[in-house]
Design a protein around this nucleic acid. Structure first.
Length: 566
RNA sequence: GACUCGGUAGCUCAGCAGGAUAGAGCAACGGCCUUCUAAGCCGUCGGUCGGGGGUUCGAAUCCCUUCCGAGUCGCCA
């Protein structure tokens, strides 16, 4: 709501000042760093520059214009400090406005995405490999962005673009047939398949012929060799079963599990179209699309005729456009594939489709180990499942220490542990690389998931046995600093959601929730809520009820679990 | 070598379409539970925003340059 007020002030001020000075004026409206200066501030320096008038004169004019604005009834003071004009909100009027608005609209927000469809491609693990902490990021960032988009009214299509095709399968099939142990693989499929994969790479280092063999096998798989196909199906099935366990723990779901293999029969059309548009060129035996000097060319077909990643991604893209008629398509994929998506866009543009502009690579930083990228090939990998279990156990220890009589301990411990891992990942801006640090992930103190859950639980335990009625409230109670901070923060919720969408970054929401929780905990330490005075009690209950609802909804949007006791 | 991303307190990070004294959490230290969940709250300590130039009334934020780290760069995905 502050955002709305700021926008109104900016817009109306620009109109009236432009009229006054006879030239187009840009007005900057911001919030001062320290709140004792005011709630809204307008630096006039840039206006002074454009109109070339003395600063005092300009500032006086701006102050006069602000007084004439309609929103000025929500303002209490207008102060000038040097080149800054600071506005102070009328706390009583503003608080009433915020609280009343909640009881009319709840947490409903403007449905800016109404009628628009966004496809999100996320998680997308590679079959026959364990679900590692590396996949965590794509999974929960994608899932959370999906939730936020839905909240804003978008139609969201969630796709798990399984990495179930490609030369790697040639490698695994070769290894399985030549030195694999069928029984071991049946018993412990993923672990054994990874061993084979790692072993393959070790052998191939000394014997590069193996790489050719793997490519050969993949080519035959692509062309329908029944033996290979059967193995492939088997590997895919056992892998998916394992992934589903993780998705269940994380509460993550998809509308489609169409992986790369799904597009096997849809690639020829892409190749044909590229040919027809005269974009395909033979180079060193392979078929490429030349992308000029800015970028290396896109390899569409290997010299043996089999396809590559980008070929399948193109086929998938056109299929999705045709099937879902998306307005945007988001690829939640790591930083290291930046070039790939730039090439993808460039090819689509060259093909003459405008929707290349709607393709967004939602990149994120790598999970590093000892400062380096984790690599399955070298067998360096940490299974996500282990991390989640570890976090849950630690959380159970905490419960046993703090609240041993809690009912349903194990389930709650799981919800806390998993949410801690999720929040730990989402709280930082997504493009930052993160060092894998279990200690840090299962930290339950300070800016963490459990802190948010704990705050919500505290409120719940006060609300539990106290139904409040929306009788007349004492808005005057809400004008002290520690209360008004909460009011202002509550009023930011909608703009925060929009900002999170704008940046495709759940961290915006995560930081906001921490902020809200922190203000609440300060309030809680200072104010007794269950006071005898009914009107005062009622007012406070209303306030914390709204806070809890925002915390809970916010946590849900991040993919965390909400609990009532801990 | 080229390109991309990053370098802010001991550690993890906010802030970056230029704005007022650079903010949190962790760690350290000191307080606060006979009153609504102390996984909390309050306070103290801690920074020439990697270095150097420049643009301007004003730079952590923009430009140039340099150092450091990571990633990518045609037959992997």
């Amino acid at each position: 709501m502050i955002d709305k007020i700021k926008n109104i002030i900016r817009r109306e001020l620009e109109v009236s000042l432009s009229g006054h000075y006879g030239e187009s004026i840009n007005v900057v409206v911001e919030e001062p760093k320290s709140s004792n200066l005011g709630d809204i501030s307008i630096p006039v320096f840039s206006i002074v520059k454009t109109v070339r008038k003395p600063m005092n004169e300009v500032a006086d004019t701006v102050v006069e214009k602000i007084k004439g604005l309609e929103v000025s009834n929500l303002l209490k003071e207008i102060n000038r400090v040097g080149g800054f004009i600071n506005l102070t909100l009328d706390r009583l009027a503003f608080s009433k406005n915020v609280i009343d608005n909640y009881f009319v609209n709840g947490l409903a927000v403007e449905q800016v995405g109404e009628g628009k469809t966004i496809v999100i491609d996320y998680s997308s693990p590679n079959i026959a490999k364990p679900f590692s902490v590396g996949h965590l990021r794509s999974t929960i960032i994608g899932h959370s962005i999906g939730n936020i988009l839905e909240k804003l009214g978008y139609q969201v299509v969630r796709i798990n673009h399984l990495g179930d095709f490609g030369t790697q399968f040639g490698k695994i099939i070769y290894a399985y047939l030549n030195f694999g142990d069928k029984e071991k693989v049946d018993e412990n499929p993923i672990e054994e398949l990874v061993k084979l994969y790692v072993e393959f790479h070790e052998l191939a280092k000394e014997n590069p012929i193996l790489e050719d063999k793997a490519r050969e096998i993949f080519k035959e798989l692509e062309q329908g060799n029944p033996e290979y196909q059967k193995l492939w199906e088997h590997f895919r099935e056992v892998s998916l079963a394992e992934y589903m366990k993780v998705y269940e723990m994380l509460n993550v779901y998809f509308d489609s599990y169409n992986g790369e293999a799904f597009y096997n029969d849809k690639m020829q059309a892409v190749v044909d179209e590229l040919k027809a548009k005269d974009l395909l060129k033979k180079d060193e035996g392979a078929m490429i699309v030349d992308l000029g000097n800015d970028m290396p060319p896109a390899l569409i077909q290997k010299s043996d005729g089999s396809t590559l990643y980008i070929t399948r991604d193109l086929a998938a893209l056109f299929y999705r456009k045709k099937t879902y008629h998306f307005d945007e398509v988001l690829y939640v994929v790591g930083n290291e594939q930046k070039l790939h998506f730039e090439q993808l866009k460039a090819v689509v543009k060259k093909m003459g489709y405008d929707f290349y502009q709607d393709i967004h690579h939602i990149n994120f930083g790598l999970v590093l180990q000892d400062g380096k990228k984790m690599s399955t090939r070298k067998g360096k990998i940490v299974k996500l499942e282990d991390v989640l279990v570890e976090a849950s156990n630690l959380s159970l220890d905490y419960i046993n220490e703090k609240n041993p009589c809690l009912i349903n301990k194990e389930e709650i411990a799981r919800k806390i542990g998993v949410s801690a891992i999720i929040f730990n990942d989402l709280k930082n801006y997504r493009t930052n690389d993160v060092e894998f640090d279990l200690q840090e992930m299962v930290n339950f103190v300070g800016q963490t998931g459990p802190y948010l859950q704990y705050t919500s639980v505290r409120i719940s335990s006060v609300l539990e046995e106290n139904n409040f009625t929306n009788s007349e409230l004492m808005y005057g109670l809400l004008i002290q600093d520690h209360s008004f901070d909460l009011i202002k923060t509550i009023a930011q919720y909608e703009e925060i959601l929009n900002k999170a969408k704008e940046e495709y970054s759940p961290s915006v929401l995560a930081k906001y929730l921490l902020n809200l929780a922190s203000y609440f905990n300060s309030f809680y330490a200072k104010e007794k809520i269950m006071v005898d005075d009914l009107r005062e009690r009622n007012t406070k209950l209303c306030l914390i009820y709204i806070i809890r609802n925002i915390l809970d909804e916010g946590m849900n949007l991040l993919g965390m679990q909400v609990i009532r006791k801990m």
